[in-house]
Simulated assay, not measured.
Amino acid sequence: MSDRSRIEWTEATWNPVTGCDRVSAGCDNCYALALAKRLKAMGTEKYQQDGDPRTSGPGFAVTIHPGSLDQPRRWRTPRTVFVNSMSDLFHAKVPTSFVRDVFDVMADTPQHTYQVLTKRPLRAARIADQLRWPPNVWLGVSIEHMDVARRADHLRQIPAIVRFLSCEPLLGPLDELDLTEMDWVIAGGESGVNYRPVDIRWVRGIRDACVIAGVPFFFKQWGGRSPKSLGRHLDGETWDQMPSQ
Rank of each mutant, 00 (worst) to 15 (best):
R22F: 09
A61R: 14
R54P: 00
M42I: 00
R74H: 04
Q71S: 11
L35W: 05
G57A: 09
K40T: 00
I127R: 06
T55R: 09
A107R: 07
V116D: 01
Q71E: 06
H65W: 15
E45Y: 01
F82N: 07
G43M: 03
T80I: 10
P110D: 12
R79M: 05
K37N: 05
A36E: 06
L131A: 12
K40A: 00
V83F: 12
Q115I: 02
L69R: 09
A125L: 03
R123G: 15
F60H: 11
S85I: 14
R100I: 14
F90S: 10
M106E: 09
R74N: 05
A124K: 11
L35M: 15
Y31E: 04
R74I: 03
G51Y: 01
T63D: 09
A92C: 13
V23S: 05
K40L: 06
H65P: 04
G59L: 07
Q71R: 08
K40W: 02
R38Y: 10
C30G: 10
M86T: 00
D70H: 05
S97Q: 13
K37S: 05
L39Q: 13
S97P: 09
T55S: 11
R79K: 09
K119W: 06
A124P: 11
G59S: 07
G43Q: 13
R38T: 15
A25C: 05
K93P: 01
L33K: 15
M86C: 01
G59T: 08
V23Q: 04
R76Q: 10
T77V: 11
H112T: 02
S97L: 10
V81A: 02
C27T: 07
H112K: 10
D88H: 12
G59N: 10
P95L: 11
V102N: 13
A124W: 00
P134E: 14
A61Q: 14
C30V: 03
L35K: 13
W75D: 07
F90G: 07
I64L: 09
K93Q: 13
P78F: 09
K46Q: 12
S56R: 15
H91Y: 02
G43R: 01
P110E: 13
T96R: 14
H65I: 04
N29I: 02
P135C: 00
D70G: 10
D101W: 01
L69E: 06
P66L: 02
S68A: 15
P134C: 13
A128P: 08
N84A: 03
K119Y: 07
S56F: 03
R100L: 14
Y47W: 05
L39P: 01
H91P: 02
P110C: 04
M42D: 15
K46I: 01
V137E: 14
M42E: 15
K93H: 10
G57E: 07
K93Y: 00
T80G: 12
T44I: 14
D50L: 03
D101Y: 06
L117H: 02
S87C: 09
V81L: 03
K37Q: 08
T63N: 08
R100M: 14
S56T: 12
P134Q: 13
T96L: 15
L131Q: 11
V83Y: 09
R22C: 10
R73K: 07
L131T: 13
R54G: 03
I64G: 00
D108Y: 04
T63Y: 02
L39I: 00
Y114E: 03
F98C: 12
F82K: 08
A34N: 11
M86V: 01
D28R: 12
P121A: 10
P53Q: 07
R38F: 00
A32M: 11
D21T: 06
